[in-house]
Write a protein that binds this DNA or RNA. Structure first.
Lengths: 172, 172
DNA sequence: ATCAAATAGTTCGATATCAAATTATCTTAT
DNA sequence: ATAAGATAATTTGATATCGAACTATTTGAT
């Protein structure tokens, strides 16, 4: 009777089908299966999506997408004047080196990073933040942490520790 | 002295820089900031990545990518013979309708779904699983749940409930 | 010393995504 | 009844990604 799973609130459509609905559908279609892992993995995915959206919103304030933002912050946290090679950057952020070439091209055009040739190995490059890049990274990391803190605001310190501990066990 | 944060184990490079290292770098570079939200959000992202990799690995066993897999399972859980329009599918999985057109093209070429014209509204389409699509979805959902269950194996029932509750609070 | 193999970065070809424009059809206001 | 606007799906154009091929160097084996 109350199986009007077609009803869709605006809130739901903004984030896809409700997890509750999905679970009920599977219980009906495949009563031989236990769909409960979907509830946990679905909650994980939704939470990650919410955080990602918030983080990308912050990056956009600096005119960056998530990709460029990651590069800038990875370089910034190495320390002033420190460099990484394109390969190291790709490794740190689980990206192909060809995608990294593309990201670096864009950041270089915007004057946020520069490619320096390595005198020790002429195949290699040192990627460094420019002054502008350093400044922008320093500004964005502050608001980035504020945005993340806001996402975590409903959790107290103990809950955050619990969450970290439990997340570390997923797929361990 | 012991700031040899350049050391990189093979295990780390497979999943990017170690979270611990990242936190230490920020403490050194920006002692004015509290980087602890990064630890939680980073753990969230890593856990989600591990689950996504496992889930895509399962989809690949059916010759599908994550995209096609999602479409197939979304249709399957509606029930045998049930249909959704391309717009509804796009809405359920937070995707543009143009991306959905593309996904449906591929699945149709493989004979897993079919587009039926809607006699009630000739602008609209009903997307239905073929017999092959239904069979494949039924096979894949079983191994999909097994793969998710394996990712959650280190967590007991109470921990899974805790994790769901905590994840729901993130960004709430 | 020399040449084969490994490595760093880029380029190329294919694919997936999105937003905007397009086509066809339906709904609504008059 | 009809025209204006809304809606469904697709096409188009731009961009980002990956894996493979490519170029330039360096390393290592003999």
């Amino acid at each position: 009777m109350s199986q009007d799973s077609r009803a869709k609130s605006p809130a739901e459509s903004a984030q896809g089908a409700a997890l509750e609905t999905i679970l009920q559908q599977w219980k009906r279609e495949r009563p031989d299966l236990d769909p409960s892992p979907m509830a946990v993995c679905g909650a994980l995915r939704r939470a990650n999506d919410r955080v990602r959206t918030a983080v990308e919103g912050n990056a956009a304030k600096g005119g960056l997408d998530g990709a460029g933002f990651d590069v800038l912050l990875t370089l910034r946290r190495q320390g002033r004047g420190q460099t990484l090679t394109p390969s190291e950057l790709a490794g740190e952020m689980m990206l192909s080196t060809s995608a990294m070439t593309n990201r670096l091209d864009r950041l270089e055009k915007r004057g946020l990073i520069e490619r320096r040739s390595d005198p020790k190995d002429r195949r290699s490059l040192k990627i460094a933040l420019t002054e502008d890049g350093f400044t922008l990274a320093d500004r964005l990391v502050t608001s980035h942490l504020a945005a993340e803190e806001q996402m975590l605001a409903p959790l107290d310190t103990a809950e955050r520790e619990d969450l970290k501990r439990l997340l570390a066990k997923v797929g361990a």
